[in-house]
Design a protein around this nucleic acid. Structure first.
Lengths: 197, 197
DNA sequence: GCAGATTTCCACCACGTGGTGGAACTTGCT
DNA sequence: AGCAAGTTCCACCACGTGGTGGAAATCTGC
């Protein structure tokens, strides 16, 4: 068990979830600690007691977001099929919880500014996903050398990530117009050569 | 000439430009009228005199952004080559003025929230670009019926727009890692079948 | 140079901001 | 039951927020 009493942990959790929704709606700068605390049914100084300051809360929200839907057990061997399955599940989950996407999209866009408190964290996140994708593309190309792509694995991976993010932003702006999980699935299958959808 | 005195018009212009930079850095909600006015060397009530309220200022900024780099003379006939050339010039300009991209990216992400003041405007912008792209894709497919794409022209256009936006967001987060105009150029050439780069 | 429209700034308003300090209460453990 | 650690709220702080009203300065066409 982590530190603190059970009540405290529950309160923290409630605050994080409400903060995620609020940041998604109004961004980091546009959200007040008081509004988050109000939604969580708590005084805003309680929030500060738990997180110290606004930036720390934001980082806690991102960390929580990333652990959402994570499988409890990792496989003994990491295969392209397993990774592709992970991406597919992520895309599915995203459709069911639009607030989480909105959160990350807004934060990523804001983090284009050099002094955004979550910039480093989001850069790392992105870099990790891109690295994994590039690795999978290499696997695919090594297995089938008939494939041609004028883009190197890293660039191709970056484009895929960018397209994924862009589709989510597009979908938020024009709800229901696109089938994002389907489009993402097609794209990944094309790039990784993994069957099934 | 539009309404007002010359001094007023100049002040308005200065405010709009400074507002664009500020919105790009901190988003709409995170930017204060006072900070914009300070940068423009003007009292914040002067700003309000010219624009009435914060939302009206935002819309003015977007409108100004869209008219930036617009050609003064339209051609008598609109051809795919002409449109493609327009897209290419836009991508070039974007590279030179990262603030403008950052502005639109942040606003688009924020506008995923249903009550964002610029939502309708940005939806229309997006719809227009997508429509033009879909038209060009149709042209291309009609000219060369050997082409195959499992996506319809509208979906393909939306994906292209999403990728374009996503690449700009990616680039803001990882400066210098990608050659965005080049990637966008390749993508457009592939979709529209227009030669030259 | 004059009149009227326009522009600009100052003072002010009610309220919201992130953050602090401390007192009262609750929890978990022995 | 007792007691320390942890939790919660209240009161407060200095400051920033979008917006208003009015008086002074400036600009434009005559």
């Amino acid at each position: 068990m982590p530190d603190g009493y059970a009540t405290g942990r529950a309160t923290k959790q409630s605050i994080v979830e409400n903060a995620a929704a609020a940041f998604a709606q109004k961004g980091f700068y546009g959200t007040s600690l008081r509004s988050i605390a109000r939604e969580a049914g708590v005084d805003h100084s309680t929030l500060l007691h738990h997180f110290g300051n606004k930036t720390a809360l934001l980082l806690a929200v991102i960390e929580w977001h990333d652990t959402q839907g994570m499988p409890a057990d990792l496989p003994s061997e990491i295969t392209p099929e397993y990774v592709a399955e992970g991406f597919r599940r992520t895309a599915e989950r995203n459709r069911e919880t639009p607030g989480l996407i909105q959160l990350l999209t807004v934060l990523m866009a804001e983090a284009g500014a050099e002094d955004h408190p979550a910039r480093a964290t989001l850069q790392q996140r992105h870099a990790m996903v891109t690295t994994v994708m590039a690795w999978m593309i290499r696997q695919r190309r090594a297995a089938d050398d008939a494939l041609v792509d004028h883009l190197g694995p890293e660039d191709r991976a970056a484009v895929i990530v960018a397209t994924w993010d862009g589709l989510q932003m597009y979908d938020a702006l024009h709800p229901g117009q696109l089938d994002v999980p389907d489009l993402v699935g097609r794209m990944l299958r094309e790039a990784f050569g993994v069957s099934e959808g």
